[in-house]
């Protein structure tokens, strides 16, 4: 019984917005299955009463003053845009409203 099925991998690809081909799915699914078996070893550690660590160091309250700093120019902002129009980023039609 694999730890992850081909269908689940296809679902992950949709969530991650990657248009995987069937051939890639065939290739990736068993590899992911192996990797998940490896990483699943973390469950062997008894850690019920252990607090999780999300940050390497225990810093808190790092904030900046509410002041303005110079922006990019619109030319700089748009310099990498695959397409631009009217000083805006031109993107293909959007299917769904947010």
């Amino acid at each position: 019984m694999p730890s992850i099925t081909r269908e689940e991998v296809a679902h992950l690809a949709r969530l991650a917005r990657i248009e995987l081909s069937d051939a890639e799915l065939d290739h990736l699914a068993p590899q992911l299955d192996q990797i998940i078996a490896l990483v699943g070893q973390v469950s062997q550690v008894a850690a019920d009463d252990i607090p999780p660590t999300s940050h390497a160091l225990p810093l808190t309250n790092v904030m900046r003053e509410d002041v303005n700093v110079p922006c990019l120019t619109p030319e700089q902002a748009l310099s990498g845009a695959p397409a631009a129009e009217e000083q805006r980023f031109r993107v293909p039609r959007i299917l769904e409203e947010d």
Binding site: R64, D66, V67, N68, V69, L72, T73, P74, A77, R88
Partner: peptide
């Protein structure tokens, strides 16, 4: 005055992509 995570201004109605 500035955005949540950077120092860009927050004025409404500025020309597009001038506050980034």
């Amino acid at each position: 005055r500035s955005k949540m995570f950077c120092g860009c201004p927050t004025e409404f109605g500025a020309p597009p992509n001038t506050q980034t």
